[in-house]
Design a protein around this nucleic acid. Structure first.
Length: 649
DNA sequence: TTCCTCATCGCCCTCTGCTGGCCGGTC
DNA sequence: AGACCGGCCAGCAGAGGGCGATGAGGAA
């Protein structure tokens, strides 16, 4: 029963907000306020909430004080600091297990923390068994940076439930212990008592709620809730939704000095018609039903506007564009957005201004960090409903946006838009890096590029090839590339230059005469290891077979290809191409021979060539072997790099 | 009673920016 | 072959703009 009758948060807030809107204070009210303020100060001691109320804009309790309805007498000894946990009654299906609750220890002070702006809380030592046992707490709509929040007035109202049984009394352990005073029910109160069980309850309570920031750096508010003894001086406020029929009863009104006061909320009006119309807002009566969707409305005007949404009738046309609207308010707002750019709502913390108050409210959450919309599946909380809805796609896997070209699906429309632009569009915009020639498809990636490559680094980055140092990674990389294909190792003693340091090491030995590699067989020394290896194979390895480059014309063998090539050019000039009769015979046989025979011919030719061109190595102590071709040339003619290339091969 | 205005909630959209996986090039 | 790097790309969230719809109150 309770759940179905609990008003949702919105309704609750709406009702409470009525309390916030106070009429301007007249001189008489000022006086009353002063008197009441004194009363509160007496009890509060140090700067109390009530004192600040008197100075601030939001004073729901003060409102009652001003109107002479209540006299608040705080019970200073009964001061509680309570932990408030958020309770949002999202629907009438709210289960009580989901309700947050708080316990108010009867102790002097209990430290508690507010996680978020509370909308409903329970005062008691046990979790509430029903919604009726909760107390509605409306936090001020205005949001303040926590640092600047010293004391904030909270509204505490009973949860308004139309038919709460007496067994489900609003119980607050802390409150009960404070001995709240009971209303002095008047005549009209008695009337309500008959009609509304809640009206007769004695536990209607009011509290002063002082809020202050929690520990530094923590996102929390510590509330101090002080019980107030209320001395009812006139009508006891009825519970909001209670007995709607009687709510509009003229007996629920109080007329003072030509002003009609609603006994349910803070509404006042000098016109009885307005007052009567207002009282209908406390009823559920909606006699005007849309014949198209059966939705009911309280007034004909509301119904007419609604029907216009069905028919497409838009009487309010914008003079500056083709837009048209159902209501004038929509047109005004549209003109502000599109044409006049008037932004009446300004943020006090930054330069932001908006057309609508709700936008400013949403914007201020970016200052306060408030995230009222909690994901039920993870810890994410958003600042508005849409972001939460969008976030839920990450849990559901829903990808509602489909590329019409390739059928790829996306979670957000913007992502798909970028996809279509980059993948399926011509003249795709590119982003040129302002510091280099790099062109990047996305702005965000250009930002990454700038961050990684063009950001100044305090620590100097050294070139890996030279002593140069750079503070920008891009410059370093470009510099290091300049070393590529560069004979950056230059000999100090001659014009020799090479790409690799090891080559320079070998070259320098030609100047120093250093020959660190010694033959173990003949003690001959070499500047390079590979020269020693060649030497060993030639002169001390019996199985060594030297490579022979044979002249294709005459068959003469050479140890080096370039020598053979030089010879072959001259050899071509001879008539038969054979240098000697023997060579001519061998060439003839070679052309007729099998591959095996050809190999043997080659060996023979090599032997001959060695004999014909052989010369003793300078300082050659050992007997000159027959196959000494190129022995000296290897040492003198081949460059270091040629040798290394030979080794690699 | 009706018109008009303002307030409010809600929804959807775009723009923006960050992040991390993927992939190809370079060393 | 493997490490490293940078651009590409989709996912995701922050912030704000714009409008639809309804409620409520002042005034004619």
């Amino acid at each position: 029963m309770a759940a179905t009758e609990v008003a949702g948060p919105s309704a609750q807030f709406t009702k409470i907000k009525e309390l916030e809107v106070l009429p301007a204070q007249g001189p008489e009210e000022q006086g009353a306020q002063g008197a009441q303020g004194d009363a509160v100060r007496r009890a509060g001691g140090p700067p109390s909430a009530s004192e600040l109320q008197a100075e601030g804009s939001y004073r729901p309790l003060q409102a009652k004080l001003l109107e002479g309805e209540l006299a608040l007498v705080p019970a200073p000894s009964e001061k509680h600091i309570l932990t408030l946990q958020t309770v949002h009654l999202a629907s009438e299906d709210v289960e009580m297990q989901e309700l947050g609750w708080l316990s108010a220890q009867p102790a002097e002070e209990v430290q508690v923390v507010v996680q978020r702006a509370p909308s409903l809380l329970w005062l008691g030592e046990e979790p509430p068994q029903s919604a009726q046992q909760c107390v509605a707490v409306s936090v001020q709509e205005e949001l303040y940076p926590l640092q600047g929040l010293e004391v904030m007035q909270f509204h505490l109202l009973e949860e308004n439930v139309s038919a709460t049984s007496r067994e489900h009394q609003l119980v607050a352990s802390g409150a009960q212990s404070t001995g709240l005073t009971k209303f002095e029910d008047g005549e009209e109160e008695e009337q309500l008592l008959v009609e509304n069980p809640l009206a007769g309850r004695t536990e209607d309570q009011f509290f002063l709620v002082e809020a202050r920031p929690g520990d530094e750096g923590r996102d929390e508010i510590v509330l101090t809730i002080s019980n107030l003894n209320m001395e009812e001086q006139q009508d006891k406020p009825a519970s909001g939704q209670a007995d709607v029929e009687k709510a509009s009863s003229v007996k629920n009104q109080r007329k003072t000095k030509g002003t009609f006061h609603c006994s349910i909320c803070m509404f006042t009006s000098s016109r009885v018609s307005s007052f009567n119309r207002h009282m209908k807002t406390h009823t559920s009566e909606k006699p005007h039903t849309c014949h198209l969707c059966l939705k009911a409305f309280r007034t004909v005007t509301l119904l007419r506007n609604h029907v216009n949404t069905h028919t497409g009738t838009r009487p309010y046309k914008c003079g500056d564009c083709d837009m048209a609207f159902v209501t004038s308010g929509e047109l005004v707002r549209h003109r502000r957005y599109r044409h006049t750019h008037e932004k009446p709502f300004s943020c006090s913390l930054c330069k932001y201004a908006s057309v609508e108050a709700s936008k400013l409210k949403r914007h201020i959450r970016s200052h306060t960090g408030e995230r009222p919309f909690q994901c039920r599946l993870c810890s994410y909380a958003s600042k508005d409903t849409y972001k939460l809805k969008r976030h839920m796609r990450t849990h559901s896997g829903e990808k509602p946006y489909e590329c019409q070209v390739c059928r790829a699906r996306f979670t957000q429309s913007g992502t798909m838009k970028i996809h279509v632009l980059q993948k399926h569009s011509e003249n795709v915009p590119k982003y040129q890096c302002p510091h280099c020639a790099t062109i990047i498809a996305r702005k965000s990636d250009l930002r990454v590029h700038l961050r990684n490559l063009h950001t100044y680094k305090a620590t100097e980055m050294k070139c890996r090839y030279c002593p140069a140092g750079f503070h920008e990674r891009y410059a370093l990389i470009q510099h290091q590339k300049s070393h590529r294909n560069e004979k950056r190792f230059k000999c100090q003693l001659c014009s020799y230059a090479c790409k690799q340091e090891r080559h320079m090491t070998v070259h320098v030995r030609t100047h120093t005469g250093e020959k660190p590699f010694q033959c173990l067989s003949c003690n001959k020394r070499f500047r390079q290891k590979q020269l020693l290896n060649v030497h060993f194979r030639k002169y001390h390895d019996s199985g060594f077979v030297p490579t022979v480059h044979e002249c294709p014309t005459c068959g003469k063998g050479f140890s080096r290809w370039n020598n053979m090539h030089r010879h072959a050019e001259k050899c071509d000039l001879s008539q038969d191409g054979a240098a000697t009769p023997g060579q001519a015979r061998r060439e003839k046989r070679r052309k007729q021979a099998t591959p095996e025979e050809a190999g043997q011919e080659a060996e023979a030719a090599a032997a001959e060539a060695s004999i014909t061109s052989g010369a003793p190595l300078p300082g050659q102590a050992a007997p000159v072997p027959p196959a000494v071709a190129g022995g000296r040339a290897l040492d003198d003619d081949l460059t270091c790099e040629m040798i290394l290339n030979m080794m690699v091969k």
